[in-house]
Design a protein around this nucleic acid. Sequence first.
DNA 1: GTGTTCACG
DNA 2: ACGTACGTGAACACA
Length: 630
Amino acid sequence: NSKLENIYTNEAYLLCKEWEIKRLLPRFENNVKSLDKKDYKIIKRLDQVERLFERLSFEEYVGVSYVRFPDSDKDGQMTLFGGDELRLMALSDRKECYVIDLCDDISESYIANALYDLSCKCNILSFNLKDMLYDFEGLNRDNCFDVSVAFYLLDPTKKEYSYDDIASEYLNMMLPGREELIGKKSIASQFDSNKDKIIELKGNEAYVACNGFIKILPELKGEYDNLYYNIEMPLLFTLYDMEREGIYLDKNALEEYGNTLNSRINELENNIYDLAGEEFNINSPKQLGEILFSEDKLGLPGSKKTKSGYSTAADVLEKLAPEHEIVKDILEYRGLAKLYSTYVEGLLKAQDSDGKIHCNFQQTVTATGRLSCTEPNLQNIPIRLELGRMIRKVFYPRDGFVFVDADYSQVELRVLAHMSGDEGLIDSFNRGDDIHTSTASKIFDVEPEDVTPLMRRTAKAVNFGIVYGESSFGLSENLGISRKEAKKYIEDYFKVYPKMKEFLESLKDKAREKGYSETLLGRKRPIIELSSKNFNIRSFGERVAMNTPIQGTAADIIKIAMVNVDRKLRDSNMKSRLILQVHDELLIEAAKEEEDKVYDILKDEMMNAISLLVPLEIDIHSGNTWYEAK
DNA sequence: GTGTTCACG
DNA sequence: ACGTACGTGAACACA
Ligand SMILES: [Mg+2]
C-alpha cells in the first residue's frame, strides 16, 4: 500500500553519473527537476557576428567553445584531403550564450580575427586552452585562461573537469553532459544529423566556462593566486610551445634497433616453447602461470598473489630463476617484448609527418600536481638498463643544436629536509654529502667511509620509504626482509633524524583535521580516505598525506623553474627551447652558440626556483642525443 | 572494460 | 588483525 516514490531524483542522477552508470541516465530525462536547458542565440549572418563581437568586447569574461574538423570525417563520408574547418563557435557572457554557425557566408578567418581582437579587450575562457591554441595561435596570451586548470587547483583528484559536473557542483545547475546529448560517437560523425544537440553541447560548455570561472574567482584571486596566475597559467603556454616544438626521432635507427630485438625475441620464444614442451602465449600471465606452476606442467613452487591466479611478475620470477632454466628466458623475453611493443612500435607509430614526436603534456591529471605525458608518454623512456637506455640515442636535436639536460639531485629529500626542519638532514645537504651514504652512516652508526654498498642500498630504500609514506610493510617488501627488521630500520631512522617522526605525524594530523594535504606553495589535495573505516583505505590515506606535500612541492618547484627558464630564453631572444620535462628533469634543445648561456640559465633558474633551508643542486650534461646528454 | 605487467620519476 | 610502498601511461590478454 505504500506508494513507491520517484527514485529518479536529482541526487540519484548525480550518483549515477559519479558511478558511471551511463545506461541509466536516459531514464532520468523526464524526471530530473530541470535538466536545465540554457537557450542559445544561433547566429548565421555576418552582420550579426559583427554586432556580437562588438557587444562582447564590453564584457570582462567570455567563455568560448568550438567545433572544428576536416571534411573527410563528416557523417562518415570519406572525402579525403579535406582541410580542417571551423564549423561552430559558441561564445558566452554571464547572461547570454551565442552559437555561431559557420555554414553560410561567415569565413573562418573573419571569426579568428574577431576572436583575436576580442582577446585584447576581454578575458577569454576555455575548458581546454592548450588545445585551443593549436587552432587559434593568434590569441592574446595575457588575457586567456583555462577553466579546467582552475578547477583542477580546487580539487586535483577529480577524474575529469567536464562542464556538467562543474555546473552541478558550483553553479547548482543540472545540465545534460556530452554523452547524454550526443552519445559516444565523435562530433564529426554526426555533425549534420545531430546538429541541435551539438549546438547545445558547445553552448553549455561556453556558458559554464564563463560562469564557472567567475564563480571561483574569489578562490583564484585568493589562496590560489600565485599557483594559478604565476605558475599554472604561464606554464600552460610553455607546455603548448614544448608540444609544438617536439623532438626529432631517428626512424631508421629505431627500426634497426627493433630488428635486433626481434631476432632475439624469436630465439627466446623458441627456447621457451622447447623448455615448456608446448607452444603458448608467453604474453598471457594466465597461460604462463599455468605452464610454470601447474602440477602437470613444470610444477614450480608458485606463490599465489593476484586475484586471478598465480603472479608472474618479475620479482616473483626472479626468485624462481634458480629452479628452472626457462625462467631466465621468460624474464629476458619480457624485457625485450616490452621494449619492442611499447617503445619501438609505439614511438614509430607516434612519429609525425615532420619527423618529430609531439607528445601531450597533461596539466590536470595527477593528484599531486605533477604533469603527465601521453601519446606517446615521453616521461617513461627507459634508462635504468643499458639495452633500454639505448633507445635514447634515437632522440636528436635539429641541425645546429644540441641537447642540454638538467635534473635535480634528490629534490624530494631536500624538500623533506626543508619542510621537516630536521637539522641532521639539513646539515647533510648543506655539507654536500651523498645523502644515502649519510643516512646509512647514521642509522648503522658507522663512519661514512665504512658504509658498505648493502648499507647504502638499505638506507636508500629507507629514504624512499619515508617519502612514500613510512610503512614497515612496504619497506620489508621492497628489501625482501622481515617486517620486524624493516620496522627496526624505520625506528633507527627516526632516532637519528629526531624531527622527522613528529613532522610526518603532523602531516597526518593536519590532513585529518583539514581534510586535505598541502604543498609549500598551497596546492591542496583532498584525502577522503583518511576517514574510511577500512584499515587499508585509511592507511593509504595516511601514506598519501605524508607523500603528497613532498611530491607536490617538488612538482611546484620544477614548474616555477620551467616558467622562469622559458621566460628567460624568450626575453633574451634566444633560439634555444625547452622541449621536455620528466618530473625532476628539463631537456632543452639549445642552439650550439647558446650552449653556455643555456647552462647558466638552467642552473640559475632551477637552483633558485625557490629558497629552501637546503641548496637545490642539479646535474647537467649536453650531447647530440638524449642518450649522450644524460 | 578490467586486470596484469612494466617503463619512468 | 588488517596487508600497500608514492605518482603516472601503454600494451596485452581475456571476459
Ligand atoms: Mg635526479
